[in-house]
């Protein structure tokens, strides 16, 4: 496993909002096929961290490399890079004015240059994969939260990404819909997708994560294997967090 290619490489990443430092010297690597869960109390900077990976949040210090390409280099074609990394948001963010099929195909056509037929076929295949073929012609507002999030995952997968970023994908869902989304994510992990997930769902972490990163106040405090994290966490903060979350 440790010989696999480094997909996401964060090197001493620091970020400030005006005078307030939100990320301090964050360093970690995610290799191909790894599933890394990022957790921590609110305000710890975990959502900010994941958004720096595809450049949605700029950084002031440090380097970020995705598949060897520097994100923070002005010469990098950021749009092209983003099209190769999939992202799933807390509030789904499907495009409400487009049908499900159109949501799935629009970026394939406009960014990747695929033909309409090819894009539609691929999109519908992934839609079937997440169990929602019947909704192909509906609009986002007609779907439940869990359904919308599954479509969002299918939309990201349709771009054939090299890695998937999940920013609290289940936090905005009613409890009974969380399972359907987690099931899709577990399936993805088992197929070997490189995943970085910000989440509170420790059950998911225990099931498929390789590593767990614990953040507190903008710093990476713990970065260890799943077993180490759950059984012998080193820091006191991590222990407190685990106690609260696992009860």
């Amino acid at each position: 496993m440790s010989e696999a290619k480094v997909m996401i490489d964060l090197q001493h990443v620091s970020k400030w909002y005006k005078d307030f430092q939100v990320l301090t010297d964050c360093t970690t690597q995610i290799r191909q096929g790894e599933v890394v869960v990022v957790c921590g109390p609110s305000g710890s900077g975990k959502s900010t961290l994941i958004k720096t990976v595809n450049g949605l949040e700029p950084i002031q210090q440090g380097n970020i490399l995705v598949d060897g390409i520097k994100i923070n280099d002005p010469k990098t074609n950021l749009n092209k890079l983003r099209s190769r990394v999939g992202m799933v948001f807390q509030h789904f963010e499907l495009f409400p004015h487009l049908s499900i099929t159109e949501n799935l195909s629009i970026a394939q056509i406009k960014v990747l240059g695929r033909s309409e037929a090819e894009a539609k076929q691929k999109g519908l295949a992934y839609l079937d994969r997440v169990g929602l073929s019947a909704q192909a012609n509906k609009y986002p507002a007609q779907l439940s939260g869990g359904q919308q999030q599954r479509v969002a995952i299918a939309r990201a997968l349709s771009m054939d990404p090299i890695a998937m970023l999940f920013d609290e994908p289940t936090s905005a869902l009613d409890p009974e819909m969380i399972t359907e989304v987690l099931d899709v994510m577990v399936g993805l992990a088992k197929e070997g997708m490189t995943m970085m997930c910000v989440t509170h769902e420790m059950g998911f972490a225990r099931q498929v994560a390789n590593r767990v990163i614990f953040m507190d106040q903008g710093k990476i405090v713990e970065d260890c294997t799943k077993d180490d994290f759950f059984n012998t966490p080193r820091g006191e903060r991590a222990q407190q967090f685990l106690n609260k979350i696992l009860h």
Binding site: K80, E93, F95
Partner: peptide
């Protein structure tokens, strides 16, 4: 802003 983020995350340019 979530819509803007989602659009950029998929690789859309500003014009797109």
């Amino acid at each position: 802003p979530g819509q803007v983020n989602a659009g950029y995350a998929m690789g859309f340019s500003t014009a797109q």
